[in-house]
Design a binder for these strands. Structure first.
Length: 439
RNA sequence: GUGGCCUUAGCUCAACCGGCAGAGCAUCGGAUUGUGGAUCCGAAGGUUACGGGUUCGACCCCCGUAGGCCACCCCA
């Protein structure tokens, strides 16, 4: 056994898997650009207080999942690896005075997040998110646009079956009253509740609604619904969001039990998920409105809305569908040689090809020609350049491995020939895991 | 953080009741000194996750640890 392994909950993205991520990132970047979002990059760690105040000190994400890093000279402060992107981006919005930019400020970021929870398939301590934030627009039209953006991303990624859950969780004006009503509803039954539900009653009453305990089903059915108790402003906002979604033809399911786990959410809450899958995590991404966040972080009250979509879970879902199959040659051409010892000429020819813009690698082994061809064939390269005695007349053999044909080509024409016969531009979102199989 | 299942070569898996650790794939070499993925032959690859215990003897039984997975908590 190797003495060192990737830390628990982390993993190496091997080249084939990394290329699937790369393509998702490219889809995300292009889509965000088309909607007018500009890329931002915030640090992977922040003062822990950014998350404690932004995300909420009593949430699971902070209480038990935050990766803390002590300062070198520990003076009671600590940094923390970002568990989600929004708090850091809003911190940057405030720090750089983005309220003086044209509003809303539309930002996107894709990168790793960190949560110290117990790993499972699709749940990692380091995971990747595609994030979108529109700060400074109270909605409701932008809410619908962002949900539509998320749906477009999944479609482009190859997951047409992704469904949307929608809810409104009110705001500071109506949520406290609703929580009080909910607590009052369950309180008389408190002693008969399962232990975990009793704890929720105190700690996070909204969670009672989506209990997985069948014994709770009857009680939950009669519970008050937040969407029936929204204040007028939240109700009007929610109605307008739904109206805009209808115009866009977005199909979604109202889910009154949808509660976002972070404190900063207000009003619109949504989630993208894949129905009917066992194991792994069905939630592929989620987001919502956070009109109170900027204030919590010391800025002027500023509305905002955004989402974070988990790339790891998308790749997992694509793998489960067998949708990552496709082949891609590592290079357009491999330069091999009849003289096993003459690596210098092969290197020189390959170097000239690259300078001309052709993807080419030289076989720098000292193996005989047959072995060099064998390797090239296993790589599924399309063209092989064979260096041999013909070089004395300025010629090389250009072999098309797919067709099995071969022609004598002047070295001077080689790059042009390869450029015209380029077969490298055919790929999907991913590729197979290589000859050995899966990761 | 709670409970459960699992861990044998790079990968997928065998190994009877506790009795000599194996195969396929992949890798490398040969058959084939200037022509490829097939075929045949061969080689290399193991502290049976790690650490203890029981036993004449442990991949196998027991304890602990680590990692993976499943269900929760929660979430992407």
């Amino acid at each position: 056994m190797p003495p060192f392994r990737a830390p628990r909950g982390t993993r190496d993205l091997l080249p084939t898997e990394r290329s699937a991520f790369r393509r998702l990132e490219a889809v995300a970047a292009d889509l965000a650009r088309r909607y007018g979002y500009r890329e931002i990059e915030t640090p992977m760690f922040e003062e822990a207080a950014v998350f404690e105040r932004g995300v909420g000190a009593v949430t699971d994400v902070i209480e038990k999942e935050l990766f803390r890093i002590a300062h070198r000279s520990d003076e009671g402060e600590s940094w923390a690896l970002r568990p989600e992107p929004t708090a850091g981006i809003v911190r940057a919005y405030i720090q750089h005075g983005m309220q003086t930019w044209p509003q809303p400020v539309k930002l996107t970021m894709t990168g790793p997040m960190f949560r110290y929870d117990r790993p499972q398939a699709g749940r990692y301590r380091q995971f990747w998110q595609f994030d979108i934030e529109a700060i400074g627009d109270p909605g409701p039209a932008i809410d619908a646009e962002i949900i539509e953006l998320g749906r477009s991303f999944y479609r482009l990624a190859g997951l047409d079956e992704v469904e949307i859950l929608l809810n409104s969780i009110g705001d500071a004006a109506c949520r406290p009253a609703y929580i009080a009503a909910l607590t009052a509803y369950y309180a008389p039954h408190a002693d008969r509740l399962p232990a975990i539900e009793r704890e929720r009653l105190h700690k996070n009453p909204l969670r009672l609604l989506d209990s997985k305990d069948p014994a709770m089903a009857e009680l939950n059915a009669g519970a008050p619904r937040i969407t029936d108790q929204l204040c007028d402003a939240c109700q009007a906002h929610f109605t307008a969001v739904r109206g805009h979604l209808a115009v866009l033809g977005i199909v979604y399911r109202l889910e009154p039990a949808l509660v976002r786990g972070l404190d900063y959410y207000t009003r619109t809450a949504f989630e993208f998920y894949i129905p009917g899958r066992q194991g792994q995590q069905q939630a592929l991404g989620g987001g919502g409105r956070y009109d109170g966040l900027a204030g919590l972080l010391g800025g002027r009250p500023t509305p905002g809305i955004g989402f974070g979509l988990g790339l790891d879970r998308i790749v997992l879902a694509l793998q489960a569908k067998g949708a990552l199959e496709s082949s891609e040659a590592a290079s357009v051409a491999v330069v091999v040689g009849a003289d096993p010892a003459d690596t210098a000429t092969r290197l020189r020819v390959a170097t000239d090809l690259r300078a001309a813009g052709i993807a080419a690698r030289a076989d720098l082994s000292r193996r005989k020609l047959g072995k060099q061809l064998e390797s090239a064939a296993k790589e599924r390269v399309h063209f092989v350049v064979i260096i041999g005695d013909e070089l004395a007349d300025g010629n090389v053999q250009l072999k098309d491995l797919d067709a099995g044909s071969q022609q004598l080509v002047p070295l001077a024409d080689l790059a042009r020939k390869l450029a015209s016969g380029d077969k490298s531009h055919r790929h999907g979102v991913g590729e197979s895991q290589g000859p050995a199989g899966r990761s």
